[in-house]
Nucleic acid binder design. Structure first.
Lengths: 146, 146
DNA sequence: TCAATATAGATCGTGCGCGATTTAATTGCA
DNA sequence: TGCAATTAAATCGCGCACGATCTATATTGA
């Protein structure tokens, strides 16, 4: 594909670009699926974390999603405004903000239950392919994070 | 991994989240590498396109990168302000804007030549792994775009 | 020929991401 | 005890992404 003297800035649109484009495509797919729930894709990820374990601090959520407070704070405020969760300062450590689902936030889980299957259908890939892809991506992310 | 009655919204943080997190990690890696060139990662992708074939229209660039004009127009204006390219209305079709590299924009290619190898090193993955990952991602994106 | 349609970019509004900085609370240790 | 260092969020500024809409130009066909 490239000569040995070629620094290959064109083909370099290789993995990094494929990953970028695939992520944008997944984002578009989830935008359609989540439109009904009035959630964005990053908001959905936060809800996944809270549905799995409610009452976490902002830092812990950021650790799990690899996002920092500059991203999370406004996102959580929007979810609070939407009535899906409550942010309150911890009484034992006033520096921390505990994020807790509201009744409505918990209930939304039922309506979201169909999302994974729909996303799977849209991928037109086998479970084996997707599992292998996931493993490679996790490995890559881990390596890049040192 | 999950029971058959489990809708698995937790494990669902499966592929979609791995892809999301991997893309963020790659973005952070490239941010470091591109800092020297004063380019952002999306700007770098546009430059890759132009280094490969100069003098394209905005739509064509958007087609190649899967980005629309709402994203590209301001991005291209920033690259123009930086002196890397020129945007001018086509004389044959006044609707089109032709994007052309400046001397400086073309020259930047030399300084970018080391980026792919550095990114490869940071991945700590084998070429085979990365090629296989790229193929899966391209397939996935293609399927999601229908 | 000229009004309907299509096409190319630009613009607007919203919501991420994140480096850098700030504010406030807690901890540690001299 | 007291104050420097640390930690947790919040804030600021910038640059994507993109749905929706707008403007200008080009095409088309009755």
């Amino acid at each position: 594909m490239s000569t040995d003297t070629d620094n290959d800035l064109s083909l370099e649109s290789q993995l990094c670009f494929s990953l970028y484009a695939a992520q944008l495509a997944v984002g578009r797919t989830y935008r359609r699926l989540l439109n009904e729930l009035a959630l964005t894709y990053p908001q959905y990820l936060v809800m996944l974390v809270l549905w799995e374990r409610d009452g976490q601090g902002v830092s812990r959520i950021g650790e799990l999603l690899h996002l920092n407070s500059a991203t999370l704070t406004p996102l959580l405020k929007r979810l609070e405004t939407a009535g899906l969760l409550v942010r309150q300062r911890s009484s034992t450590d006033e520096r921390q903000v505990t994020v807790t689902l509201t009744e409505e936030g918990s209930a939304l889980r039922q309506r979201a239950a169909c999302i994974p299957a729909q996303a799977f259908d849209a991928s037109h890939c086998s479970p084996e392919e997707l599992a292998s892809l996931k493993a490679s991506l996790d490995q890559l992310r881990h390596n890049l994070d040192q």
